[in-house]
Design a protein around this nucleic acid. Structure first.
Lengths: 249, 249
DNA sequence: CGGTACTTTGAGGCCACTCAATCAGTGTGG
DNA sequence: CCACACTGATTGAGTGGCCTCAAAGTACCG
């Protein structure tokens, strides 16, 4: 039920609760650029197919997006999950020259800025350049961390890391307080994020539930009971990680 | 036998055969910046330990580098391999804020530019900024591609992809003609790159040799006999990939 | 010639996969 | 209001790919 790019985009200038934390201190021109290109999409919308629209930068203001790649046999890997405040630049950053798919995981508000306009703007705004640099650094850090667990690392470690990563990133932008949050992902999608089959994601999370580390309620509502245990399973130091995968240091 | 950062760096201004392809058309000031910070390192030198020297950008002019991360149990994942022409900016690009290890895989010439000087220089040189952007895009593309195979993808596909990726990148900077090249990696290291044990790397490559796809001679001299077969195993389209993982489009 | 580093091959085990069936939640139309 | 369909979670059974342990082979070097 993927909708190919709802072109009937909804210009959303009614209210401005969309100004995400990382964008708060930016210049007026930056804010204006985002606002004039803002669109809304429902969950499960494909914004960009491999190399299709090669000329836009995506600035996320609300909702969750997934950047993914697929093998010829259809198996898919979610390369990165982008939260509000994230910037996806297929031609220079988060997603490479092309061949990645970009889709919404939930109802989202995204500013779709033509690459040319974006580049021209960046030339004039050093502060925006710094923001982009910081955003990319955070994305790379996340990806490296996830790669490490994809290569080495058990199913438990992969899932545990993903849960912590998303929880921390969410907290950084003012969501999910105290280890409670909602994942707009099926176990299938989570599996594609961490490189596991949906079945094994289920088993793994079930086990962590039995062990009292987390609690799940209706459709991926996560409550982290024992962050220390979870961090141990994931093989990370919470404090260290915080400084690395969060963009707004 | 890792040498902790040979501080007795050898300023290498004897000849200038170091000017790598991607750097050829850059400004004089850029060239000068690199030259004044150039150093030589022997293979197996650790240039940067997790978050240690937090303030340098590394511009590779010759040799191979590895960017890696380790788990608490010592298992290591090579996040990216950087060839001549590559730029590693731990605080904004290839390697994230910190917590990555950077080491030489072979004798290398690298310009180690202090972050502050680098940032200041970039402010004044839009062309250099574009180069950085392009370099990052290529790195991200490679990483995404490798992540896909790390998550889904058999041992064969992972190894095959790595061989093709490195061959193509090497060819792009004027190395290894016609599918023949030398990998300055042990099977152990190649395993850390593609997420396999050294034993299984061996078996996999042996099998590809038996199947007539590649030939190996003394210590990782690779000859690709049947690129089409190899590409099929890797699950890629050669032409498509070329445009994506190579920086100098 | 012994030492070291790396590759190769065998044997056996475990983790995660696939296949498949059941269950739970949510609509949807009669 | 209930039967039906549909999507997603759960659990079991069995398999296979990759791992580990281990031993032998090969090249290089002091």
């Amino acid at each position: 039920m993927n909708h190919i790019c709802t072109t009937h985009a909804v210009p959303n200038d009614t209210m401005d609760h969309h100004s995400v934390k990382p964008f708060q201190d930016m210049s007026v021109r930056f804010t204006e650029l985002l606002r004039s290109n803002r669109r809304s999409f429902q969950g499960g919308t494909i914004l960009r197919i491999e190399g299709g629209d090669s000329g836009s930068v995506y600035v996320v203001q609300s909702g969750w997006l997934a950047v993914s790649k697929s093998m010829s046999d259809g198996a898919r890997q979610i390369v990165d999950i982008v939260l509000p405040g994230g910037i996806i630049n297929p031609s220079s950053a988060d997603a490479s020259v092309s061949s990645v798919q970009l889709e919404t995981l939930s109802i989202s508000t995204v500013s779709v800025v033509p690459s040319v306009a974006w580049a021209r703007f960046l030339e004039t705004d050093p502060q925006a350049r710094d923001l982009v640099t910081l955003t990319i650094a955070a994305a790379l850090s996340r990806m490296s961390e996830r790669m490490l667990r994809l290569g080495k690392g058990t199913a438990q470690a992969r899932v545990a890391y993903a849960l912590i990563e998303l929880c921390m990133r969410l907290a950084a932008i003012g969501g999910g307080n105290g280890g409670v949050y909602h994942l707009p992902l099926t176990q299938q999608l989570l599996g594609e994020y961490v490189g596991l089959s949906s079945v094994h994601v289920c088993r793994t999370m079930r086990r962590m539930t039995r062990d009292g580390v987390i609690t799940m309620s209706d459709h991926m509502n996560i409550l982290i009971h024992d962050l220390d245990r979870l961090a141990e399973i994931a093989g990370i130091d919470v404090e260290t990680l915080k400084g690395q995968i969060i963009g707004n240091a």
